[in-house]
Every structure is written in C-alpha cells, then in structure tokens.
Design a protein around this nucleic acid. Structure first.
Length: 870
RNA sequence: GGGAGCUUAGCUCAGCUGGUUCAGAGCACCUGCCUUACAAGCAGGGGGUCACUGGUUCGAACCCAGUAGCUCCCA
C-alpha cells in the first residue's frame, strides 16, 4: 500500500469527525461507570471562535478524551449563552443599519428580530468547535434561553425572592447611557484618562467672599446640594454651617462637614451631588440631603437640571466651563489624570445613577462558597487565584441583577399602578397574589420590563444543563461535575457565582477542579482584539497547520494561569510534530512488506526492553502531570517520548541494516509500542492518531482510538533506563570522534575497552549497530595511538584513523584535565569545611565523597592518556 | 488608594521537601550534513552573577527582610 508522504490533515479531520459522530462515541448517558463531567463555559450564542476559545476548548477536549480512554463515563456538555447585553447591542446595531430604531419597535417585535438573529448566527461557534475536534455530546447542547432553562432561571429568582434574598432598592448603580441599562460593578472597566480639574467659585450667600471647589465634572453643579469640608480642616472651620451659592445655578446650599473629604485633594472642598456620584450619595444619605437627578437616561441634561436641558453631558462640560469663565466664576483649570469607568460592552463613560433595581443579597449566600474553596474542597489550578477569590468573597457586595434590556429572562415581578408589587411566575399567579396581598386594589398590573443579568442565568449552568431543578436522574449522576476550564477574568462573574448557586440549590460543589487558563496575547504581549487586528483567525490557522497542529501549538507554552504569547511558530511546531509522527508511521508500515523469518537481532532485543521500560516510566510521569493539571508539561513529556526516545533512538536501534528484512518479533513489538504511544498522544492530536491507528493494523468495525484504553503503567525496569543513559553517552562519544576527525559515518570503526573495567555493556549490540562498530575488543592493557573518551569512569578507545591530529587530541585532554581539577577543587573545599562534614546528612556527604573519588580517578586516567600521546 | 503575584538563556517557561553530574526544557541561534521514514529533517555546539542588597544556614534560584522594575485584580 502506498502511503502519502505527508499527512493530509484536512481529509482526516472531515473523515474521522464524521465517523465519531455517526457512531455516537461522544454520547453519554448515566450508567454504572463513574462519571467524568465537564460543562463548557458557554460562548456567546452569536459569537465567533477566537483564540481564547481555542485554548480553553483544547484543554477541555484533552481532559475529556483522556478520561474517556480511562474508562470513565465522560460527558462534555456544550452550549451557548444568550449574552443579553452583547446580543441586544448587535441586534440594535443591525436594525439601525436597516434604518429601524429600537424605540420604534414593540418589545415583541424586537424580540422576534433577536430570535431571528440568534437562529441565524447561533451555533456557528459550536460548528467551529467541531473543526477543532471537540468531543462534546452534541445531543446535550443547551442554550440559556431554552424553555426549560428559562424556567429554571425564573424559578430561581422567585425562590430567592421568597427567601428574602432578593430585594428591590434604590441604589447608585453604574449606568450605561448608550445601552441605557444598569451594569454590575464587574461590567465596568476603569481607564486612566487625561482630564481637567476645574476650580470653581462658590460665593457665600449675600457676599463676594468665596470658597474654591475643585471638580473634574463641572456639569454636575446642576445637581449640587451642598459643599463639604473635612471637620478637622482648620482652613474652613468657620465656614461650616454657613451657606454658599452654586455658581451659575444660584442655588443656596449648606456647607457641611464630613470625614470623607480628603483635605489634600484639590482645595479640600468637595461639592456634593448625591444623584451623580457614589460617594456623594453616601454623604447625602448621612446628612439627609436632597437628591437632584439632573440627567436623562441617555446622558443628556434633564428638566431638573434647569439649564442646558437636552444637551449632552460632555458638551455641557465644555459649555459650562466657558460660561463659568465668562461669569468670572472659574478660578483656574488644571490638567489632571484620573480613572474613569467605561462600559465593558459599549465603551462609553459610565454614569453613576440613582435608580430602582433588583439586588441579590450576597452576604449569607456566599458563605459556603468561600469556605469550600479555601479548604480545597474545590481545587483551584493554579492555587494562587484562591487569594483573589477570598478577597472578593470577603468584600462581596450585593449583586445588581436587573438590566434595562429586552433580550433575556424577564423579571417575574408585576407592579400595580400605585407602586406595589408581587413576584410570580405568570401574570395569572401575579393577579391572585396581588389580590391576596392588597385586596382593595382594583387596577391593572404590569410586568417589570427589565430582564436579568446574563450571569443570573449562567450561574445555574452546571445544574440546569442536567435539568437539575426539575428532574433528579441526570443531575444526581453527573453533578458535581469534575473539571471546569475557564479564564480567570470571569472568576467573579461566573465561577464564584456557580459555586454559590451550587451550594444553595444542590447543597454541594458544582465542580471539583477549576483550571484557569491564561489570556491569549500576541507576540508583543498585547491582548488579542478585533480593533488591534492582531488576532489570527482560528479557522485559517487550522486550515494551514491542521487542527492537531494548532491544538499542540496552543498547549506548547501555556501553564495554567499564565498568559499565552501566541506565535504562529508554535502551530508550525505542532504541524512539524504531526509530520514527524507520520513519517515514523511510514517507516514502520514499510517494514510490513519485508518481514522475514530471521531471528531477532540482538540490538533489537535490547531496544524493545529499553523502550518498554522508558514507556512505563513516561506513562507514570504523564499521569502525574495530568493529576496536577500541568497540561503543557504532559504535552512536552509526550513530545519527547515520541521524538527523542521513540524516533531518534528506538526506531534507529531496530531499523534493519540496508537491504535486509525485519524480523517478526521486533515488528510486532514495535507495533505494540507504537499503539501505546498513539493512545498517549490521542488527547492532544485526535485526528492524526485515529488515522494512523486505523491504518497501522486491521481494526474491527466501529473500533476507535477514542475508546481504546489509556495505557497502564507497569513498573519500569530501572536497569534498562540506567544502562541507556550510559549507552547514549558512549554513542555521543563515538559520534564526536567521528565529527572532530572527519570520519564518515559509513566508515566502520574498531572499539577497544579494558578487560579490567568490566564486561560487555547491556547495550553492547546497539552500540555496535548505531556506532557502526566493526568489532569491540577487550584489552588487558591500555592501547596507544587511539582516540579516547570516558563514560562513567570507563575508558573507550578508537584506533587512530589516517586523519588523526595528535596536537588537537592533546589540547583536548589538557582542557578536560583542567576542568576536572577545578571541579575537584570545589568538592574538596566543601569536604574540608568542618561544618559541612559535621551537619550535612550522610547521603549528601557520601555523594560528595564519591564525586571526589570519581574526579581523582578521572584525572588519573586523563593524565595517563596524555602521557601516552607524548 | 487597597490587595495579589511576578523577575531564571535571545523568547516562553520548568526547577516539587534548601543538598546527585560546578542551573534544566522547548523554540530561536551557530556549525556540519540532500545518511535508503522525515531538510516540516539528522548530528553536534554556544549561550545564565537565577532582578538587586543584606540576613538565616555547613549549604540558598529556593527560606526571611529591604530595594528596584513589571503584571493583574479591586475601589
């Protein structure tokens, strides 16, 4: 059979993925086996695959594939998130392009558009994951707005409300004037910006005397209700209790004192605008100040502002500065750097705003979630994230869950015309409840127009994907899930809240391990983003390097929690690795035709023994890497096993001499070893391994490497491993002599050893085979006229060929003697240190003594050799 | 402003309980090879004051303190 000389990744990917799906290899239903479960972090339903997804899902796939091979009932649940604000923003944008404003549409009409958009773009990302090889149970695909899921979110709200954990309150919230919605604190991004500090004159009522107040937001004077100073600030002590006039506005406001004011900042006088600043709001509450809401929901000035009505907040800032200057009320303007909050989604400046919102009381809910992470019931990888988690949980704030959007789970609250409300699942129920609670009320009721924060649905993900709120069978089997793989950026948004919901609703942890990936950055360390255009298209990458190549590339340099500086070179390395294995396969397959009845060559006997020992040891290390979630190390371990041990050494050892056939035993042993290696590699490179595994031996129908057994590590025979180390040094010694003296590899050499230094090496036949040694002769005395080298205290001699250079040989020896003497000196210094001899443990002492003896012996040998050349 | 973390080869990182072969890997780099699986390859090689300063210890990349620089998170 003719085998292509390059691996055709594209056809293998299409062929085997279809084969896997057809045969339902990734499906999972509860059975007697132990489950191993991963729920995917649901990507935005209308999103496209980016490099972060690639990393994240590659890791999940590696974990789940290995678990499947280990005999677990492996279940990877895929799905998507409705992503309320992101999706709504996209739909609004699309409609705008078509000349339709959201405000022109009814809620139902808008939702129809949103659903249409969702159906059109939804799930693209899941199709892309299939290209990557993701072995999800696709029949289980969930969407956070599926009917049942929707119900579970609403029921959760009602339940928490009934338990008194959800309340409605007026609070300062982060307002996004572009999306016209409240945002949670987590959705605000603080950026440092160059702005200005304005110094304004607040004249004392009926006087020309004035206070100077510094502010970065002069437009908010429209909402000023007081001026505040620190009570300890002597400069202003006599002003407290007096009143001043707000500039331009000419409203009379009191001067109050509060510890909050920092005397060092600006002039030490703070203007108080409770409706438009979080801290001012606090001061206002403490001092029973009025609030003047001077801004509309779109960031323009409202009627209450009294001036500049309808103008945008930033225009007003400019205008008011001019007007203040004209009126002689602006003392000065300084440039100033401050941090300003921006909306994560729309990138506009957040407006602190007083509004009526729904909140979850987090104090009690978060208790078990904190405890069970700190005591490692839930393991974080890497554990350093426990600190950040604890810090956040200990300072947890109530969670604002209402969003002024239409796309999402609508808040199940109904209001009467007089400001009463009830929480109920349906309008009918709401009516009944209203009647019950307020029997006198006769008017109509209206459902809250707002929807819930997206995370209020995704925090139920590990429960709701198994219908855990309504049925028991699945959730009892799969929950708690095993591993969660996600980005540290959403530790608070999502991970923490899933843990909270897990304990609240299942009384148990949602997952046992959390693996935090890093952020994928470009070579220069910049975050990958659309606007920078520095993000490669994953699909194109897979086209170029093959899915397996890209998977390997993603994992090559990314320990848990560390950012990954992405470089196409990594994928190239992955692709090259694919090719290396492919060629090993071609070599082995080629032997099939040349199997003869000859006896096994002695070198092959050694090779097989050693390779099996090496394999066993590597499997142990691999399992260890995996349990510690050292994914990149597991890959590197596999990489070296294949490239170095198997290809560079083993295959060369068993390769028959040119023109000769392969013996049956070695061939079968090699197949067996190769088979194990393919299985170890399969989680990383599913397509390549399936292709080779199916071709290298005849497989029965419906067989797949996906369900083959993960190799079990047997006790590695240390004898072979130690002998190999010595052997490889001998081979390197021979190669070096060839190289330094321009002796062609083809030229056969004689090798001399000393009888007194022991018997034939375990690897003796392999040394002759790979070193191209004519014969190994054991001598009683040291030969002369030889090149030589020392390995582990034993000398090896190769008679001079015609190219030899005595002077060069001598120089080499002198150099080595010098080096060894230096080493000896160090060891002796250590050993002559009384403290060391007295206090070091015996094992260490002994090893130092051995080093000393070895060095002395080596110097002796080298000196003798040098002498023999003279 | 509060908190956490990082600094080891040109790059990305290992280095686990302080102690084997005067500090390891992969990539990159240099040299030589079209050797009959593989130039997407083979063989060999160079490269580090473990950020800095002090301390503990017989012994420190590792433990402690301080200094500098960087990163992230939170307000």
């Amino acid at each position: 059979m003719e085998i292509a000389n390059k691996f055709d990744s594209k056809s293998a990917e299409t062929k085997w993925y279809a084969y896997w799906l057809e045969n339902g290899f990734f499906k999972s239903t509860p059975d007697h086996r132990q489950p191993y479960t991963i729920v995917i972090p649901p990507p935005n339903v209308t999103g496209v695959l980016h490099m972060g997804h690639m990393l994240n899902n590659t890791i999940q796939d590696v974990l789940i594939r290995r678990a499947r091979m280990m005999g677990f009932n492996a279940c990877w649940v895929p799905g998507t998130d409705h992503a309320s604000i992101a999706t709504e923003a996209k739909v609004v944008q699309k409609l705008r392009k078509e000349g339709v404003k959201k405000s022109d549409l009814s809620r139902d009409a808008f939702l129809e558009h949103a659903w249409e958009w969702t159906h059109k773009h939804g799930g693209i990302i899941l199709e892309q994951l299939k290209k990557l090889g993701a072995s999800c149970d696709w029949d289980r695909t969930r969407f956070t707005m599926d009917e049942k899921y929707y119900d579970s979110v609403i029921d959760c709200f009602i339940d928490l409300y009934n338990k008194g954990k959800i309340y409605r309150g007026e609070r300062m919230i982060n307002w996004d004037p572009a999306a016209k919605t409240a945002l949670s604190d987590e959705e605000v991004i603080y950026k440092e910006v160059q702005s200005a500090l304005y110094f304004l004159k607040y004249k004392r009522t009926g006087s020309e005397e004035f206070l100077t107040v510094a502010t970065t937001r002069p437009e908010t004077i429209l909402g000023d209700v007081a001026v505040c100073v620190n009570p300890k600030d002597e400069r202003y002590a006599h002003w407290i209790g007096k009143t001043v006039m707000v500039p331009l506005v000419n409203r009379e406001v009191p001067i109050i004192a509060d510890e909050y004011v920092d005397p060092e900042f600006g002039t030490g006088c703070l203007k108080v605008t409770p409706a438009h600043d979080m801290n001012d709001f606090m001061i206002g509450q403490k001092n029973q100040l009025a609030t003047i809401n001077m801004m509309n929901d779109d960031g323009t000035i409202s009627e209450a502002g009294g001036m500049y009505i309808g103008m945008d907040r930033f225009e007003v800032r400019k205008q008011i500065a001019e007007d203040l200057e004209t009126a002689g009320l602006l003392v000065k303007k300084e440039s100033h750097i401050n941090k300003v909050g921006y909306s994560e989604r729309t990138d506009v400046v957040i407006e602190p705003r007083l509004s009526l919102q729904w909140f979850v009381d987090m104090k009690e809910l978060s208790g078990p979630a904190l405890e069970n992470v700190m005591n490692d019931n839930i393991h974080f990888f890497p554990p350093k994230f426990k600190n950040a988690y604890r810090h956040w949980m200990e300072n947890i704030k109530d969670w604002c869950i209402s969003r002024q959007l239409w796309w999402g789970h609508r808040i199940p609250a109904w209001y009467s015309e007089v400001g009463k409300w009830v929480v109920a699942k349906t309008e009918e129920e709401a009516r009944l409840k209203m009647k019950e609670l307020y029997p006198d009320y006769q008017g109509s009721i209206l459902q809250d127009p707002d929807v819930l924060d997206t995370w209020f649905s995704s925090w139920l993900w590990p429960i709701s994907v198994f219908d855990g709120f309504y049925t028991k069978e699945e959730v009892d089997y799969y929950y708690p899930t095993t591993d969660l793989v996600t980005a540290p950026e959403i530790m608070f948004f999502w991970v923490a809240r899933m843990i909270i919901a897990g304990y609240e609703y299942k009384g148990d942890l949602p997952f046992k391990n959390v693996y935090y990936t890093g952020i994928v950055r470009d070579k220069q360390g910049r975050k990958m983003s659309k606007s920078l255009g520095n993000s490669p298209d994953p699909l194109e990458l897979m086209e170029q390097f093959g899915a397996d190549g890209v998977r390997v590339g993603m994992l090559l340099s990314s320990p848990a929690g560390n950012d990954l500086l992405f470089d196409e070179g990594l994928c190239e390395q992955g692709r090259n690795f694919t090719n290396k294995i492919w060629n090993a396969f071609r070599l082995i397959k080629g032997w099939e035709q040349n199997i003869t009845d000859i006896a096994t060559r002695p070198s092959a006997v050694v090779a097989v023994q050693w390779m099996n020992a090496q394999l066993n040891e590597t499997i142990q290390k691999l399992n260890d890497d995996y349990t510690k979630f050292r994914m990149n190390e597991a890959l590197m371990t596999t990489y070296k096993l294949i490239w170095d041990d198997f290809c560079s050494w083993y295959l060369e050892m068993v390769k028959p001499p040119y023109g000769e056939g392969m013996d049956k035993e070695t061939y079968h042993a090699t197949l067996e070893i190769f088979d194990k290696i393919l299985r170890l590699l399969h989680p990383f490179m599913p397509f390549l391994t399936e292709e080779i595994w199916q071709t290298i031996q005849i497989r029965s129908e419906k067989e797949t490497i996906c369900l083959s057994a993960w190799p079990v590590a047997q006790e590695a025979d240390k004898k072979w491993l130690d002998a190999f180390d010595e052997f490889s040094e001998i081979i390197i010694g021979i190669r070096n002599i060839r190289k330094e003296n321009q002796i062609a590899n083809k030229e056969k050499l004689m090798l001399n050893c000393l009888q007194s230094q022991g018997d034939r090496h375990l690897f003796h036949p392999v040394i002759e085979h790979l070193g191209n040694i004519e014969e190994t002769i054991f001598l009683n005395e040291k030969p002369t006229q030889c090149y030589s080298f020392i390995v582990k205290g034993k000398e090896y001699f190769i008679p001079f060929t015609e190219n030899f250079d005595v002077e060069a040989e001598k120089a080499k020896l002198v150099e080595e003697i010098k080096y060894t003497e230096g080493f000896l000196a160090m060891v002796q210094k250590k050993l002559s240190n009384e403290g060391f001899v007295a206090k070091a443990p015996p094992a260490v002492l002994e090893s130092e003594r051995k080093k000393q003896a070895d060095a002395v012996a080596k110097i002796e040998l080298l000196t003798a050799q040098l002498k023999s050349l003279n």
